[in-house]
Design a protein around this nucleic acid. Sequence first.
RNA 1: GGCGUGUUCGUCUAGCGGCCUAGGACAUCGCCCUCUCAAGGCGAAGAUCACGGGUUCAAAUCCCGUACACGCCA
Length: 482
Amino acid sequence: MTIRTRFAPSPTGYLHIGGARTTLYNWLFARRHKGTFVLRIEDTDEVRSTEDSVTAILDSIRWLGLDWDEGPVDLAADRGPYAPYYQMKRLELYQKHVRGLADAGKAYPCYCTREELDAMRKEAVAAKRPAVYDERCRRLTDRQKAEHEAAGRRPSWRFHMPETGETVVDDMIRGRVAFDNALLPDLVIQKAAGGPTYNFACVVDDHCMEISHVIRGDEHLSNTPSQARIYEALGWTPPKFAHLSMILGPDGSKLSKRHGATSVLEYKALGFLPEAMRNYLGLLGWSTTDSRQLFFGTELVEAFDLAGCQKNPAIFDQTKLTWMNGEHLRKLSRQDLLEHAEPFLKNAGLTGPLDPPLDRTVALEGEKCKLLADIPGRVEIFYKDVVFTPKALDGVLKKPGVKEILLDVAGLLEGAEPYAEKVLEERIRAYCEAKALKTGQVFHPLRAALSGRTEGPTLFGMIEVLGRSKSVGRLKAAAALL
RNA sequence: GGCGUGUUCGUCUAGCGGCCUAGGACAUCGCCCUCUCAAGGCGAAGAUCACGGGUUCAAAUCCCGUACACGCCA
């Protein structure tokens, strides 16, 4: 069986965490089974859909490092054997199938206005009946229809749902889920304005694009029996369904803006790595039986399996994501780390070429960071004038004997040949011994004098990378303060 | 309101009737390593497996009910 999955976002906003995970799972499943991953834009909500959203969604998916085999290339073009992949370009197809259903007596026009529908619903709720459409237009005579048309009413089209028995959805994650047909309302499949509704367009497209597995959020589980009936009425075999649990905020409610960052592009800006994001999202609602945490390179694709998917919702934990990001950061090559860090360095005013070169300072400090955004703050000591923290100045430097040590070491550095970490360390340690000083008595003031801080790079690495003249200069400058 | 889904340490999860006095990971705390900060190593604390009934020699695991949360109808 050829595996074809899809992600079908509505471009009514940015790609949020939940959508990102759905995309990831569809992509992983397709890649795992050497299938095809399709991207389809469900832009039939003309009021809420925006081009900016489309761009943001495409950018987000690309940033995550996920590629699609068929779908939009940009705002104007799409590519693939089932094009177009923008639903607004497929309206005729939906209308054709609505007509087909109408001709077969499985769909009928409904002339009810929004107000009438609202009133009906209120009445039903007041009478404690299920708040579903009462299917009154199903029984309209030709004459009544003509009257409505004459009055200028444009009908929406409803799908005639079976009223008895049950509809069973065999979900790959949730198992067998049964719904009572009597409770399935006659769904609108085409709006009065002519556009399809979500549930209809989705069915038509998934079938026409030969999607084999629909992996989507839990919020669609309740729509699935209705969709299953539409497949049946159209004479189509439905795809396999897999409904993913929701992602919640720290307080257990649906993840939203008040919980902090929810868009994947925000996480990019915060300094998270796409591979860390994939790793974390992959594990949010899915796991292996050995509870493995870290996946690098293609390991996620190799391990992924729908069977490991969780039924219950998961709370998004940025702290764990941050830890994971540090793990992935440390796995990066020196060159990759620098490339990823560049936008953040630039943002902090650190653009090359600089002395010392950024690749050296980033290599020295990058591995200690959890976020790319942490890097500038750690390497800036090499480039900016020394600013002493109170702890460095009062707690470390302003001690008896420190001035002499700084001056002595400055002199030592001036004569060190070659000027390299190993040599520097040997000389300075020898100096400690000669003066009968504990290494800490010397190392700590040196660090404070060179960087203004009490924490930072490994001392001798810092002295080497800083360079002879800057190091000596800083030591002398600090000594002059004492 | 109806229907659907879910409920194991603070969080993500392992667990598919005996291996569970419930395992791992993040976070927290302590110790070690160490020129600092990280990282790493070791350890501690943390879950009456939502609650109540059953079934069974035996249940976190199976069945029923209740509560709560979330979703859909909207």
